[in-house]
């Protein structure tokens, strides 16, 4: 079946270097550095990535960081809490605009 997203493409990520090796090198070097343990542990960074993956609804990233979170020692309950954080922010971002609506209504309606 034709589909935009093919799971096997995730493994081919590095092929994006074909059109510009230097930018790809800089990106992947940066990417590698970002996920190294620092002030945050690798597990914490992986859970953040998992939450962001759900926010941007990237199927490659969800596959990659579901596996990676498990490998970094997170369990299903921790991973589920992480995506609820993403969900709360995403839902909250809509809801907080309700203040704008409220102001509008207060000005226009009796």
């Amino acid at each position: 079946m034709e589909t935009y997203y093919r799971p096997e493409d995730l493994k081919r990520f590095a092929e994006v270097a074909e059109g510009n090796k230097e930018l790809a090198r800089k990106f992947f070097d940066y990417y590698g550095e970002v996920f190294k343990a620092g002030a945050l542990s690798e597990r914490e960074k992986s859970l953040i990535a998992l939450a962001v993956a759900h926010t941007i609804q990237c199927p490659y990233c969800i596959d990659a960081y579901s596996s990676d979170s498990l490998e970094k020692g997170a369990d299903l309950e921790q991973m589920t809490e992480a995506i609820h954080v993403a969900t709360a922010i995403r839902g909250g971002a809509s809801l907080v605009h309700g203040v704008q609506m409220l102001e509008h209504v207060k000005k226009q309606a009796m």
Partner: peptide, 11 residues
């Protein structure tokens, strides 16, 4: 607990 690799031992 599954079909994934054990992570970094120190971490």
């Amino acid at each position: 607990a599954g079909a994934f690799l054990g992570g970094c031992q120190e971490a």
